[in-house]
């Protein structure tokens, strides 16, 4: 049975477009599987997804219920990772916090990807003064200090998850625009684009229907590589009190509130930090592995 799938996926003459696509994916997976570190990364990311999906089942307590008689308890059988200064169960808070982390990452990806794609494909396809203007703008943003700029944005917009996402996205899009432009430049002169033009396809139709889909894969790899950075920046904003607001169990904010107790009750700050570390390590390992598979000369 399994051998049958294997052959079907690796067939030299796929019968349908679907089979060919799945076959390509399968080959990438076979290459990724040979890299043990990348597999560990993939496992961590999958565990994070699972944790977020099953949060109410995995959490042993409510993430926001306070229990002042049980505050600052060390890790034990009842509270696996201990309790915080308000008696809340840290394990449950971390489990629920994974949803916030994923939310931030997904929102940033959904903002940055399309924005970079639009700017990059427009600049690359239209060329001329549009290209000059957009790329100058990109270069200007590329030269800015990211974290400080994000800080200033959040300061102006007010703290909160949405604004943190917006601030990160505003400082993150330039490399995506550049990448999309570079991809567009290599596609622009192809015969199939010329064919679409001669059939009378409009410019927006060519960009959206023919060019953008081909830029997607490289943008996705880049996003995977940036995921860890996004998580760290979001956690940093949370740590400074500019991201998710209490009582939301955001990991960075949890470290910040545990900071005052760190000398005696180290687990308050240590546990959420460990969660951030493991997740961003997972994304880094996976991103590295994906890049090696999809772009062997980068090694």
């Amino acid at each position: 049975m399994i051998a049958g799938w294997h052959d079907w996926l690796l067939a030299d003459t796929p019968r349908s477009r679907g089979q060919a696509r799945l076959g390509r994916l399968y080959i990438s997976w076979l290459a990724l599987r040979r890299n043990p570190l990348a597999v560990i990364g993939l496992a961590i990311v999958l565990l994070l997804l699972l944790m977020a999906a099953l949060a109410p089942l995995l959490a042993t307590h409510s993430p926001i219920a306070q229990d002042l008689t049980n505050r600052l308890q060390p890790p034990s059988a009842a509270h696996w990772l201990g309790t915080d200064e308000l008696g809340r169960d840290i394990w449950s808070r971390i489990v629920h916090g994974s949803r916030l982390t994923l939310l931030i990452v997904v929102l940033v990806a959904l903002t940055v990807g399309p924005f970079g794609l639009v700017i990059g494909t427009l600049a690359g396809y239209l060329g001329g003064w549009v290209d000059t203007l957009l790329m100058r703008l990109t270069d200007i943003f590329l030269a800015f200090p990211r974290l400080i700029l994000a800080l200033a944005f959040v300061a102006a917009l007010g703290p909160g998850i949405e604004n943190a996402v917006l601030a990160i996205a505003i400082t993150l899009w330039p490399p995506y625009a550049r990448l999309a432009r570079a991809e567009t430049l290599t596609i622009r002169g192809s015969d199939f684009i010329a064919a679409a033009q001669m059939q009378g396809a409009s410019t927006p139709r060519i960009i959206v229907g023919h060019i953008a889909p081909l830029c997607l894969s490289s943008l996705i790899v880049r996003l995977t590589l940036d995921m860890a950075g996004i998580i760290l920046t979001a956690a940093g904003l949370g740590f400074l009190g500019l991201g998710a607001q209490p009582p939301l169990p955001e990991w960075g904010a949890m470290i910040s509130s545990g900071r005052g107790y760190v000398l005696d009750q180290w687990w308050l700050a240590a546990m959420p930090g460990l969660a951030i570390f493991i997740v961003s390590l997972g994304f880094n390992l996976l991103g590295d592995g994906l890049r090696d598979v999809l772009d062997p000369k980068q090694r």
Binding site: G273, F277, S280, N284
Partner: peptide, 17 residues
């Protein structure tokens, strides 16, 4: 990779402890 993945403020806090 560990240096790449750890939050700098957390590592600082733990080092301080």
């Amino acid at each position: 990779l560990i240096g790449y993945s750890a939050p700098v403020f957390w590592l600082g806090l733990m080092a301080l402890v």
